[in-house]
Amino acid sequence: MSESTPLIGEPLALDLVNTAPDGPDLLDTPEQLAQWLALQADRLHGIAHEPPTEADVIAVRAVRADTAATLAALLAGQRPPAAALRGLEKAQAGAPLIRELDWNGDAVVATGRRHGPLGATAAAALAESAIDLLTDPSIGKLKRCEADDCVLLFLPTHPRRRWCSAQRCGNRVRVARYYQRHKPESSAD
Results as ranks from 00 to 15, higher is better:
M1P: 10
L7N: 04
E10Y: 10
P11A: 03
L16W: 07
V17R: 02
T19R: 00
A20Q: 12
D22I: 10
G23T: 14
D25H: 14
L27Y: 08
D28R: 15
P30N: 00
P30M: 00
P30I: 07
Q32G: 10
L33C: 04
A34G: 13
Q35D: 14
Q40Y: 01
D42I: 08
R43C: 02
L44E: 04
G46L: 00
T53G: 02
A55W: 06
V57E: 02
A59K: 10
A59F: 08
A59Y: 07
A59G: 13
V60S: 03
R61P: 13
R64F: 10
T67D: 00
A69E: 12
T70I: 02
T70G: 02
L71S: 01
L71K: 07
L71C: 03
A72R: 15
A73W: 12
Q78R: 15
R79Y: 11
P80W: 12
P81C: 05
P81K: 06
R86W: 11
G87E: 09
L88F: 12
E89T: 14
K90V: 14
A91N: 05
A93Y: 09
A93E: 13
G94C: 01
G94Y: 05
P96Y: 01
L97N: 07
L97V: 14
E100G: 05
W103L: 01
N104E: 08
A107Y: 09
A107C: 05
V108R: 07
V109Y: 07
V109N: 02
T111P: 09
H115W: 08
G116Y: 04
G116K: 07
G116A: 01
G116M: 02
P117F: 01
L118K: 03
A122M: 00
A124V: 07
A124M: 01
A130G: 09
I131G: 01
T135W: 03
D136T: 13
G140P: 10
G140Y: 12
K141R: 15
R144F: 02
C145T: 15
E146P: 09
C150M: 06
L153C: 03
P156K: 00
P159N: 01
C164H: 09
R168E: 07
G170C: 08
Y179A: 12
H182D: 08
K183E: 13
P184T: 14
E185N: 11
S186H: 14
S187R: 14
D189W: 05
D189H: 09
